[in-house]
Simulated scan of single mutants.
Amino acid sequence: MAQTGTLTQAQSDALAGYNLALSNFKSILRQRRAQIDSKQPLPNLPGQALYLARNSTMSTYKDLTDVLPSRIGRPNKWGIPPAYFDADLEPLIDEYVKIFEVMQAPPANAQKSDTPFKDVVDLGRVIARAKGLGAADADAAGRISLGLFFAETNGNQTIGNARSNKYKGSLQTGPPEAENGRRKWAAIKPSIASLDPGLNLRDDREEARLGNLDRRYNHWTSVRDALMNAHADIFPQIPDIVKALPDPIDQLKLFELIQIIPSPTKSALRSGNPMSYRVSDPRIMGYLRNNSMFAYGRADRARTSVTFREILDAMWLFNAKFERALSIFDGIKRGSKG
């Protein structure tokens, strides 16, 4: 950008805004890294400032490329549309991810699993079977459940949350959601015992293992209770969802929306034409933006109404996670222990 004198005022303002946001992002990254390396106490919700700084960087970059399309560069390794992200900043996002891994690390007494991916798939499958689905649709439920695990934690088990004191665990639930899921599991447990005695025994062992631990810090119970709370009641609709959305990644996105905006997503499914169902409630739009949809650039943030098809298309930050989940699911089907 040596020829800054040739820029219009709008272009100059957009460039200045982006440079300021990028500088702030780098500064907060350095600050958190220094605090971690020197073992200083971190502030409450230490990831929030980082998250907002990252969002601001992407948002101001989109504002810049809107008025200066020549700044749109090469593709990046996450598949983020190049108009939203400068691929030269990949090392900054790598550092961002590493810092979050430290800040969200499970507590020392967390109860991990040696087969975390297979556990998620097995639980999704057996819950779907208990809800009356056949083998093929239960298989889809296992695949969808694994996608949710990657959407919520990038496949990391029993983690905390650097942006919230409420949500924890392998599928990031709050205490009321976890307790609701536990009650629902207890109601179908006789069916589970009949369908899969081995899995039922594993469940009994995990319950005995818990002691006084927060249930969300045991991988098995964390996943089980989260699936029962938010998704199990939707599993019977999987045959219709798969028919309406043949793309597996679209299916995963729809189920992730049950996690993010449950009521509108269920209404969309009941409508008979879910992809045309429109959302315009400002509160719901806020939830979408807080989860990286319509959050970057003035044009996207100005949107006040979107269809579910537009929402799914805007969930591009989930694509790489879901592609990894699908790859791991294929490995589990081939016999990997996961």
Rank of each mutant, 00 (worst) to 15 (best):
I241M: 04
I144K: 00
R71V: 10
A295C: 07
G142Q: 14
I36S: 04
Y296A: 11
Y84P: 07
A325S: 15
P75C: 00
R182N: 13
Q40S: 10
Q48E: 11
G338D: 15
P274V: 02
K62A: 15
S170Y: 03
M275S: 02
F85M: 12
Q48R: 12
S113W: 04
G286R: 10
Y96P: 11
P43N: 13
Q31N: 04
L89D: 01
K337S: 14
K333P: 00
P264K: 02
T307Q: 08
I328E: 14
R30M: 04
I284Y: 01
R270G: 05
D88C: 03
S12E: 01
R71S: 09
T65P: 09
V102A: 12
T115I: 06
S276F: 00
R289C: 11
S191Q: 05
S267A: 10
R54F: 13
K112A: 09
P46V: 04
R283F: 05
N319P: 00
K321E: 11
K26N: 14
M103S: 08
A314N: 15
Y296G: 10
P81A: 13
I260D: 08
S327K: 07
L326V: 13
G124E: 13
L171M: 09
D225S: 05
A187T: 15
G331K: 15
L15T: 14
T307F: 03
L20Q: 11
P190F: 12
D247S: 09
R278N: 02
P175I: 02
Q111E: 05
I328S: 14
K333C: 02
K77V: 10
A151K: 04
S56L: 08
H219W: 10
P176C: 02
L148Q: 12
D63F: 12
K321I: 05
A151N: 11
K266W: 07
G198C: 05
G198Y: 03
S145A: 15
R205P: 05
A87S: 06
S23H: 04
L269N: 08
P46R: 08
L254H: 01
F100E: 09
G338W: 12
A49R: 15
G297L: 06
V97W: 12
R301G: 05
I258E: 14
D13I: 02
T153Q: 07
V306C: 15
M1E: 06
L171G: 01
G132D: 10
D300F: 13
A151H: 07
S267H: 01
V126A: 05
T60Y: 09
L326Q: 11
Q11E: 15
N218W: 07
V223K: 00
D250C: 00
P43A: 13
L148F: 06
E323D: 04
V279N: 02
A105G: 08
I238Q: 03
P107D: 12
P264G: 02
A187C: 14
D122T: 11
L52A: 11
S59V: 02
S27N: 06
G17Q: 08
R209I: 14
S222C: 06
K168F: 09
L257E: 09
A140P: 01
E256M: 02
G155H: 05
W185I: 10
P274H: 04
